[in-house]
Amino acid sequence: MTSAIRVRGIRKAFGDLEVLRGVDLDVNSGDVVCIVGPSGSGKSTLLRCINLLVTPDEGEIYLGDVALTNPHIRPEWVRQQIGMVFQQFNLFTHLTVKKNVTLALRHVKHYKRKEAEKIAISQLTRVGLADKLNSYPAQLSGGQQQRVAIARALAMGPKAILFDEPTSALDPESIQDVLTVMRRLGEEGMTMVVVTHEMGFAKEVADRVVFFDAGRILEEGTPDEIFDRAGHERTQSFMKKILR
C-alpha cells in the first residue's frame, strides 16, 4: 500500500487560537479514513489544510511524492487532485445541476461542452441523479444537493476526496442516500477522508478511524479498536456519549 496523502507536523493558528497543534496522518490509497471528535477540535481545518483552502503555518503535506506545502505548487493544481465536499453543499445556486458539474471541467480542464456534459451525465448517474440534469439546486432536497456536490467533485477525476461533515445538515432519510453513495465510492476504491459524526458509517465503511481532540490526533486505529477498545480516557468518554 502506498500512502496517498501524508501529513507531517501540521500546525495552524488563527490569531491566538491554536487550531492544529502538530498533526501527523497517513492515508493509504484506496482507504477510507474517518475523522471523529468533538466540535471545534480542528477536524475541518485539517481537511481544509490538505487541499490548501487553509495554508498551514508549519509542517508538510504530501500527495504521493509531491509536497503540497511547497510554495511553487499552485493551489489550483492541488484542488484538481483532491476533491472536497462541504457540509453546506455549496452548489452554485445560479447554475443548473448539469452546469454545476461541468463548470470546473470547462474552465479548469478546458473540455469541450459535449465532452464535459458526457462526464457530468455519467457522474450524476453514479450518484443517482441523472434525471435532475436541468434542475436548479434550490429545487432539490438537501440529500440530492449533497449528491450533486459529490458528482461535482468526482467529475474532476480526483485522486482523493475530502468530506467535511457531509451529512450534518441533512434529514435522516437523506443521510442514508448520501451515505449509500459514499459507501459505494469507498468500495470502488476511492481514497476518502471523511470528517463525520455518523458513527455507524465510520464503523462499517472506514478502514481506519482517527480520534481528534483539541487540535491533535489522540488515537487512531481500526474501527473496532477505536469504538470498542479505545485506549485513551478522552476517547472512551466521547464514544460512551455518542454511542449511548
Binding site: N51, L53, P75, E76, W77, V78, R79, Q80, G83, M84, F86, Q88, N90, L91, F92, T93, H94, L103, A104, H107, V108, A149, R152, A153, M156
Partner: peptide, 27 residues
C-alpha cells in the same frame, strides 16, 4: 454572495479571476 460559493469554486480548482466572472458576478 455567500463565502461558500467562492470556497466551492476554489475547491474544484477554478482560478480567482474566473471565479469572479462565472460564480460571483452573475449572482
Amino acid at each position: 454572495v455567500p463565502a461558500g460559493q467562492t470556497e466551492a469554486a476554489d475547491a474544484v480548482g477554478i482560478s480567482r479571476i474566473r471565479t469572479m466572472f462565472v460564480v460571483v458576478l452573475p449572482q
